[in-house]
Design a binder for these strands. Sequence first.
RNA 1: GCUGGCGUAGCUCAGGGGUAGAGCAGCGGUUUUGUAAACCGCAGGUCGGGGGUUCGAAUCCCUUCGCCAGCUCCA
Length: 678
Amino acid sequence: MRTIRAGEGDQRQLLLSRWTRGFLGSMPVTASSFRRRIRRLPRCLLRCPDYLREEFMQDQEIAQAVAGLDPEAQRLYRIRHSLAHVLAQAVLSLQPTAKLGFGPPVENGFYYDFDLEEPITAADLPKLQKKMKEILRQKQSFTRTELPADQAIEKTTAMGQPYKVEASSDLRAKGVEVISFYENGPFTDMCEGPHVETTKEIPEDAFLLDSIAGAYWRGSEKNKMLTRIYGLAFARKEELDDYLARRKLAQERDHKKLGRELELFHIEEEIGKGLILWLPKGTVLRDEVEALAKEFEFRYGYERVSTPHITKQELYYRSGHLPYYKESMFPPMEVAEDDSRAMEGDAPGEAAGARPKEVFYLKPMNCPHHHMIYKHRPRSYRELPVRLAEYGTCYRFEQSGELSGLLRVRCLTMNDAHIYLTRAQALEEIRTILQMYREIYAVFDFTRYRFRLSLHDPARTEKYHDDEDLWREAEAVLKEALEREGVEYYVGEDEAAFYGPKIDIQFRNLLGREETVSTIQYDSVAPNRFDLTYVDEHGQEERPVVLHRAPLSTHERILSYLIEHYGGAFPTWLAPIQVRLITVSDELLPYAEELRGILRAEGVRAEVDLSPHSFGKKIRNGAIEKLPILLVIGKKEAEERAVTVRRYQIEQQDTMPFAEFHNLLRDEIRTRRHVRPA
RNA sequence: GCUGGCGUAGCUCAGGGGUAGAGCAGCGGUUUUGUAAACCGCAGGUCGGGGGUUCGAAUCCCUUCGCCAGCUCCA
């Protein structure tokens, strides 16, 4: 039985493992489990950048597996890949001097990168698309030719395609002997393939040039930025339409849009980018999520702490954030007692005298503070694990282009905790953390996530600490915890933190983008840097291990997911307004207000609609605001001390005694039950 | 940070050289209503900011800020 293992050292294997482990899952992977999972491979292939795919396809076993993919997936792959060539052909016909980068198939379609003399804008896309359709109608056939690497380099040079020259030279440098070309009509491209036989196979109405964006050549910031044209492509028109409809639906649920419409949060230019103003309703969401976290953490033996937002630079030299992490931190504040009130514009030093200034930073993380709490007195092995939890607010100077709604911000509040324990306790504790994570996810019915074991790359000494023994131990513990808990996971090579490996939980949002939401990190560095100790049963001082964990991420990030996950229609326990009472006429208001009083006395977020609108309008407003429960009160209900319960998007309405409703509601909120349309 | 696109009323959007518009929301009246929009009226904008071209700029040019998408980054 052949076993494919990650991290076999050579570069190719590393690349391979990086892009395939997600689909191969737990390692080592046996041939049988490999075959079982191979069905999921196409997506991986499609998401894999072109230059890595070449590496990827050279693995015999994988290449064969791909060849054995279901014919439909293969066909789609060929269509998308061929459309990329057709796009390049169309671009060249408009701009013969365009230089070609890579043009691979990707999830939902394809792209091609161009170095253009004349910029192309979105307005040019219809023209290009028309040209592509003309090309398709020409029924051009694709023919493959193979050349020895040397000749391939000559050929690409003769073609006047410098990027292809670079790519072919690199392939030769890696020992590739034969390089293939595909020719269709007047167009030739260096390409691994495979392609359709002729453009006839490509349906004219199932693709669409979608967007234009910049992309660095070979994905490196140091290289020139090329123009990338994205296209959507499917095997049938209905699939394209279906995808477009799904995307439109996803856009309707965009947390930025819902955040504005439902008055959850606001970003004010005058306050600063990436700095969120949480409106009253959004603050309820934060508070409820926080209450959930505190409940779990109490149950799992955490103690809460609280730490300041600014701290002297000395702490960050000790932690190693300075100078290493400096570019992600807000610039320092220099303060001297004498000039702390000095106005901007005063001559520097004038008021300060000779007194040395203190330098403060906004904290980018909570860990250093928690470490100081741990070490404020000697610790005994008897009290380990010590679990310190804080919803800590941190400030990070993220690159401006990275900021996006709630997903990437500059002020964030983390569901943070640090666990201090002996090395022997680590495995059990990590298993317990994993259990807690899964319990928490179950509350929200999360399904679009996967676990990633994020390991270090021993070759990148500049990125990681250099104690290989510690790496081995830490990576083994995380891996074993995952396996003992029966968690499906994949391996992310070169995804560790500098201080240790991690288990990251990758969530996929509605538009398919994946982000780390939760994390569990094994820190082998902090204990030394902070000189953390405990006294063991023999009276010896020992180093504890530190685990960082954040199941509920940051308020900002988890709420961006929750808003999209629920499409703004939150379950009752989470909803900013849980119950709105709507009266058929004003004379019933006193009854409604009495019920509201009863509910609010118990902490239920209930309100009476006192607006001057018509009854119908009040119902409509309640629906637009996506409130989970509207209580309709007419004469009939008032006489019987009843209510009519109307739930969001549930047609069936029930009239019941208020007391009965009250019991149901109490239970629904306590158990955090989500009542949804069937 | 880079590339491209976009900034008009609280929101969604029209207007593309000749003094700024609609719907919704808001406010004031009238209406007292049984399940997704009652009626009438009022108010609301340095057209993101700054500079330029022009007799005249929301409109053309430059610059700056912000937003969006992608790329890069993400302890």
